[in-house]
Design a protein around this nucleic acid. Structure first.
Lengths: 183, 183
DNA sequence: TTTATTACCGACCGGACGGTAACAAAATGA
DNA sequence: TCATTTTGTTACCGTCCGGTCGGTAATAAA
């Protein structure tokens, strides 16, 4: 399972064959079919595991008494954390490879994540700790920044994991513009 | 060519067969091979076209006398524009489907885009219109936000194209945090 | 009229891949 | 100890796909 996740993330779903996964597990393909009904089921299982782990990660750090601003920070930190784990990052899997049923399940997870972030953002609007125009676009921007990390050729740039979430948070909350001239 | 781009973006490279493309062009696969040496060459051609068009787009709007802040805005607007065009957005193509040679070419385009954005950001640091920690992470964040647009199920959310770039720019430059309490 | 060139097609090859049928060896438990 | 379930295996099928081969109309150049 964790091996499948890693392979899907590294080579991509289409380019990871069931034989690849089986070999990685030191078994054979038909044996894989004893445990899973189809390739898609394996993918869906990977996605589900990632989502469950994310829920745990965030439950540990969360605190509803905090401001929206801080609760967004917590979300971003947990999500960056998740996506940095090769094994758990399949929530970003491309839906186009899935059947309609699989697509529906996958979208469900995404929708829950999206709703969580949107709520935090809206809390921030209400308590005055955040200001923005359209919360949906802000959420898309945040997810995009983080999801795209899966496309970095990570080895190349030596950046500490915490640095990334720290700087993403600062980009999201404070932006990079100074209050100086707007020429 | 433009049809190939659209299909690659909609279905993904692996799931677009040469027969699909040929049929879309009302010709046959062998005829495709008269014009291109391989499937990868078609992809590379799509990427190249997108890149060239981006260069034009940005050249029209650019002005080196502007502040770094404004030049970043110009880049973001042009890039959002490009990615919103189904036909020209192949610069975001997943490198993993490519041969080493193709990967090298594709990375070259990406590197040039990245360098352009990095320069604009650094100009902003020097002229005081921008402030940040690591320019590379900022650039990755910006590209991520925008590149991920290709994963939106665009029809669903009715948002005007200009609104997106406008709000992305505001997110990047000003962030969503208020200067208020940081509880 | 002969010779090239351009642009295309039908038919096919070899390999990979998801999935299956039939069978064997462990592990389990009475 | 022996039957049953669990977990594997070998061998194979159908399909799809990138790519190739041999050939052909149509048009232009010599």
């Amino acid at each position: 399972m964790t091996i499948a996740s890693a392979m899907f993330r590294e080579r991509g779903y289409d380019r990871t064959s069931l034989d690849d996964i089986a070999t990685g597990l030191s078994i054979t393909k038909p044996s894989l079919y004893y445990h899973f009904a189809s390739k898609e089921e394996i993918l869906l299982e990977c996605i589900s595991r990632g989502y469950i782990l994310f829920q745990q990660k965030i439950a540990d750090r969360d605190d509803v008494r905090l401001s929206g601003r801080e609760r967004v920070r917590i979300f971003v930190e947990a999500y960056v954390d998740l996506l940095q784990d090769t094994v758990l990052s399949m929530i970003v899997a491309d839906e186009r490879v899935m059947s309609e049923a699989g697509k529906a399940k996958s979208r469900n997870y995404k929708r829950m994540l999206n709703r969580d972030l949107l709520e935090r953002i809206e809390v921030g609007r209400k308590d005055g700790s955040l200001a923005f125009d359209d919360a949906r676009i802000v959420a898309f921007g945040i997810f995009g920044m983080i999801n795209w990390m899966t496309h970095w050729q990570s080895a190349a740039l030596q950046i500490a994991p915490e640095t990334v979430s720290e700087q993403f948070v600062s980009l999201i909350l404070d932006g990079i513009g100074t209050s100086a001239r707007r020429t």
